[in-house]
C-alpha cells in the first residue's frame, strides 16, 4: 500500500490498514534504534520544524530524536522566547513557518483544531503533537504499538482508559487508534470528567463508559491511566485529589483485577500516588518506559512516511 496522507492531524478517519502500516514501519524503526549507531540518512536535507506553542519537553524531545535518527535538520520554535508569547497571531506564525521552508511542521498547541488551521495554510506536511483536548495522534499510535507488542493482537481485546477523559487528547487518540485495530475500550473516570454525551450512551464506536473502576478493570487486557491536572479540583470538577486517588487511582490491588500480565500504560508525566501508585508505575506490568522508546520509533515512522509523500498534491 502506498502512503497517501499529507498530514497527521488526527487518526479519527484512518483505516485499519493505514494504522497497521504505521505500526509495521514502527517495528523497523525500533530495530534502527537498537543499532550501535542510531542514525540513518533517510531524511538528509529535509527540515523538520518543531513548533511548540505549549510547553512540553517529553514530546518535543521525542520528535527531535526521531528527526535526528533520520538525519533531518531540526529547528525549534517554542512558546517561551518566541513571538507567540508576545501576542503574534497563529496566522502570522504560519506565514513565518512557511517562509522558513520546513518540509514538516510538528506542532503542539493549546487550541483544539489549531493543526487544521495550519495545515490549510502551509505547503509543509503537518504532524499534530497535541492540540487542546482534541488529539495527540502519535501518542495514540505509540500506545497501540506498545499494546500490540505486549498482547500480540488487539482483536477482541478490551483496554481500559481511566482518568480525565473530557480534557484528554490522549484518550481520544487512543480510542481512534485502538478501536480500528479490533479492540474495545472501556472509559472510566469521574462523571464530571467524562463528556456528557459519552456518559449518556452516545459513546464513540467501540467504547463504553463504566464509572466504577473496579468493574471496568475486571478481566481487562490492559489499562491506560491518564494524567490528572490538579486544576480540575479548583474548577469544581473534583472534591479533592485524595478522593480521586482513592476512587480512580491505579493501585496494586486494582491492577490484579485485570488478566494476569495485562499491561499498564501512562502517557507521562505521572503524578505518582494520584492516578497511579508508584509500585504499579514501576512494577512488572508497567510498560511506561517502553512507551517512551516506542514513541521515538512511531514518530520516525511518520516522519519517514510523510517526507516520502509527493511534495505538493496539485
Amino acid at each position: 500500500m502506498t502512503w497517501q496522507r499529507r498530514h497527521v492531524l488526527a487518526t479519527d478517519d484512518w483505516s485499519r490498514a493505514e494504522i497497521e502500516q504505521v505500526l509495521d514501519q514502527t517495528g523497523a524503526m525500533v530495530e534502527v534504534l537498537g543499532r550501535p549507531i542510531r542514525r540513518t540518512p533517510a531524511l538528509r536535507g529535509r527540515t523538520v520544524i518543531l513548533f511548540f506553542a505549549e510547553a512540553s519537553t517529553r514530546t518535543r524531545v521525542s520528535f527531535e530524536l526521531a528527526a535526528k535518527a533520520l538525519s533531518a535538520d531540526v529547528t525549534n520554535i517554542t512558546a517561551s522566547g518566541s513571538s507567540v508569547e508576545k501576542g503574534e497571531t497563529l496566522r502570522d506564525t504560519v506565514r513565518t513557518l512557511t517562509a522558513l521552508g520546513g518540509d514538516v511542521i510538528v506542532m503542539r498547541h493549546a487550541a483544539s483544531g489549531a493543526p487544521y488551521f495550519v495545515a490549510e495554510r502551509t505547503d509543509a506536511a503537518v504532524i499534530n503533537a497535541g492540540d487542546g483536548w482534541h488529539a495527540h495522534p502519535t501518542q495514540g499510535l505509540l500506545d497501540a504499538y506498545t499494546l500490540r507488542g505486549a498482547l500480540g493482537d488487539l482483536d477482541g481485546r478490551r483496554i481500559v482508559i481511566v482518568g480525565d477523559i473530557t480534557h484528554s487528547r490522549v484518550a481520544r487518540s487512543d480510542i481512534d487508534a485502538l478501536v480500528p485495530l479490533g479492540a474495545t475500550v472501556t472509559l472510566s473516570g469521574p462523571p464530571t470528567l467524562v463528556p456528557s454525551a459519552w456518559r449518556c450512551g452516545m459513546t464513540p464506536r467501540g467504547t463504553t463508559y463504566e464509572p466504577d473502576l473496579d468493574r471496568a478493570l475486571d478481566g481487562a487486557d490492559g489499562v491506560i491511566a491518564l494524567r490528572l491536572q490538579k486544576e480540575r479540583q479548583h474548577a469544581g470538577l473534583l472534591p479533592s485529589i485524595r478522593e480521586y486517588a482513592k476512587t480512580w487511582g491505579l493501585s496494586e490491588e486494582r491492577v490484579k483485577r485485570m488478566r494476569p500480565e495485562a499491561p499498564v500504560l501512562h502517557p507521562g508525566p505521572m503524578n505518582e500516588g494520584v492516578e497511579i501508585a508508584a509500585s504499579v508505575a514501576h512494577g512488572a506490568r508497567s510498560l511506561i518506559e517502553t512507551q517512551v522508546t516506542n514513541g521515538v520509533a512511531v514518530r520516525m515512522a511518520l516522519l519517514y512516511l510523510l517526507a516520502g509523500t509527493p511534495e505538493q498534491v496539485a
Partner: peptide, 10 residues
C-alpha cells in the same frame, strides 16, 4: 528517496 515520490516500505 526524495525522487521516487512515495515512501517504500521499510
Amino acid at each position: 528517496l526524495t525522487r521516487i515520490g512515495h515512501a517504500p516500505v521499510v
